[in-house]
Write a protein that binds this DNA or RNA. Structure first.
Lengths: 215, 215
DNA sequence: TCTAAATTACTGACCAGTCAGTAATTAAAT
DNA sequence: ATTTAATTACTGACTGGTCAGTAATTTAGA
């Protein structure tokens, strides 16, 4: 009988917090906050439950850490695009596609699902998230849209409302991946979905003609 | 000291199941399945916890009942629209607006949020929901889109993918109402949102010109 | 060594589910 | 009608298991 190795029991003060929040994120997204046990998080991270309490005061504190360190860093990447692109159409495309590639298609894509599920159980985190993530992301999108309208490239639409409408299909798809996706077989092809999405919204947004009104 | 009335203790065998699932739905949507106590559901419905077990075998069974009786009836309403409308544009509008008015804007609008949150904890319910609600709803939308493409009213787009893209902004908004909505102050005006939404997607979907290509 | 990191064993609150009993309703008997 | 018996809807105290959080102990590294 080969006995199971007792435990390596490494000490790695620096890397731990990341490993713990990563493990917590994936389990919170999968099962929800209340249904996730700290023992499971610890096991996935390769430590014992007690170790969790060396780095986080409580399960709630762990939740907050997951949300905070998850998304905020990814926003910088979007904001620099405003200066990188001049053409409003290319800019908008880059922002939306960037969101998908950096967040939606990664593990981070579970955060919107998690945050939506738990917003009313953690009102303070929800407010934080709404201000630091949603409003900031919306502001970014709004600038891109406004620039397009100013230059006559986009039709005149309500900039505030359009932002939600634009991001919704991407968030929706990301949430799907973390809910029905694993249960209900075949997801449609991502590339096809993105293509159809951009085709619809950009076509719906573009002013009818480049110069004045003729084709 | 006027003593508190002990309890009316009404007996209403017929109405109970509805009252219980209604109470359960609103609490499940608010707190999530795991974080909702049966005592709270019972209290909101004006009965004791024991009564719950006269009508449902378990907390899980109650969840399933909430989902099943919640949405399925509302689908019929959509399916009859296929025959009521001939014009594809009006049909599509009626379907999407109908979804908002019958589901999205009502208490039922919490079900997508609930189902997304709990899909991976209830794979069998998720499969049921996916087949009986999502696929059925998608099929309905697809027919409307296909009719529009056939008649040259809509541009040629992938019918499968477009359905998700079309419904996403409505579902997203409904989920918002039940998550961030109560926490984070001002929601933008619904009418304005719907107007902008229809403006974008219908404009994005319409073929460039009625007859051939000229404006 | 000796300190810090991690584990293990433990506690107590909480909650799904149970069940003996009570109140309301109906039916039967006078 | 009015009491009595039988039935049915409902209650709430109780139990057993679970799990967040803690305290005692062990192990790794300087």
């Amino acid at each position: 009988m080969a006995e199971t190795r007792p435990a390596p029991r490494r000490r790695r003060k620096e890397a731990r917090p990341q490993e713990l929040t990563a493990a917590a994120l994936s389990l919170f997204v999968e099962k929800g906050f209340a249904a996730t046990r700290l023992d499971d998080i610890a096991e996935r991270a390769g430590v014992s439950k007690g170790t969790l309490y060396l780095y986080f005061d409580s399960k709630d504190a762990l939740f907050k850490a997951v949300i905070q360190e998850g998304i905020v860093p990814a926003l910088h990447a979007g904001e620099v695009l405003l200066d990188e692109y001049d053409d409003p159409l290319a800019l908008l495309r880059a922002i939306l596609l960037g969101w998908w590639e950096r967040i939606g298609s990664t593990e981070l894509g579970g955060i919107p699902k998690l945050m939506m599920s738990e917003a009313r159980n953690f009102p303070d985190v929800a407010v934080y998230y709404q201000q630091e993530v949603i409003q900031r992301g919306t502001a970014l999108l709004r600038k891109a849209v406004a620039r397009g309208i100013e230059r006559g490239v986009f039709r005149k639409v309500d900039p505030e409302a359009i932002c939600s409408v634009l991001i919704a299909p991407l968030v929706y798809r990301a949430m799907w991946r973390h809910s029905f996706g694993p249960c209900c077989g075949q997801e449609t092809d991502v590339a096809q979905y993105l293509h159809t999405y951009f085709d619809l919204v950009l076509n719906g947004l573009l002013a009818p003609a480049p110069g004045g009104d003729a084709q």
